[in-house]
Design a binder for these strands. Structure first.
Length: 206
DNA sequence: CAAGAGATCATCT
DNA sequence: GATGATCTCTTGA
């Protein structure tokens, strides 16, 4: 109980600054591994150690929504770095992305999985399958566990209810694989833009 | 277990 | 009108 409270005590001084997100999308995707996603919510806070990401690197990337141009949906990606791009897919699931790179360059990192660290009981109440390994091991599951939906689309990651902490861990060893579910993306579908923490039990099962 | 289908809707053609 | 940065449950071996 006491340990749980310690874990929940977040420190905004550790919050990643906007300059972090202004790096290249690939760099951001790699460096987000081992960082902590923090979601503040009236029901309670939830925290997870990011273990899986995917980079969507810009307008030329056929797997990136922004390759279709600037629309109401993709508008956030064209804005400044360090904001959330949240969209709804398959009639069921929200996907959380963090906008990267400079203003007017549309790119983002998809957060695909996290190891639950704080607010685990709350996550279990939000998820049908309350197994620890199944709470946030996939982009849709993660959004459900962290109560992330489109109301957070465009949210500033440097001031509010949703941000990422650097707790001083070095970036863990990781591997790169092709991205999931982007078979339509022609020669871009095989790019090794999915990054997973090596040996983590909490990555998505694909 | 592996494979398959169904769920369900915002977005763009 | 089609389709998707998915998940879960059912089926059958």
């Amino acid at each position: 109980m006491f340990n749980e409270l310690l874990k929940l005590d977040t420190n905004s001084a550790l919050q990643l600054p906007r300059s972090f997100y202004e790096q290249t999308t690939i760099d951001v995707a790699k460096q987000l591994l081992g960082k902590y996603l923090v979601r503040k919510h009236p029901e309670g806070n939830t925290i997870g150690r990011i273990v899986e990401t995917e980079a969507y690197v810009g307008p030329q990337d056929l797997a990136c929504h922004a390759s279709k141009g600037r629309t109401a949906r993709t508008d956030v990606m064209f804005g400044p770095a360090g904001h959330a791009y949240v969209y709804f897919i398959y009639g069921f699931h929200n996907m959380l992305n963090l906008v990267t790179e400079k203003q007017d360059y549309p790119a983002a990192v998809l957060i695909r999985a996290a190891e639950p660290v704080g607010g685990i009981e709350l996550m279990k109440t939000r998820r049908k399958n309350g197994e620890l390994l199944n709470l946030a091991s996939g982009p849709g599951k993660l959004c459900q566990a962290f109560a992330i939906d489109r109301s957070l689309n465009g949210a500033d990651l440097c001031s509010g209810l949703l941000y990422v902490e650097d707790r001083g861990e070095p970036t863990p060893r990781f591997q790169a694989t092709p991205r999931i579910g982007v078979d339509y993306a022609g020669r871009w579908k095989n790019k090794p833009y999915r990054f997973l923490v090596r040996g983590s039990e909490f990555v998505s099962k694909v």
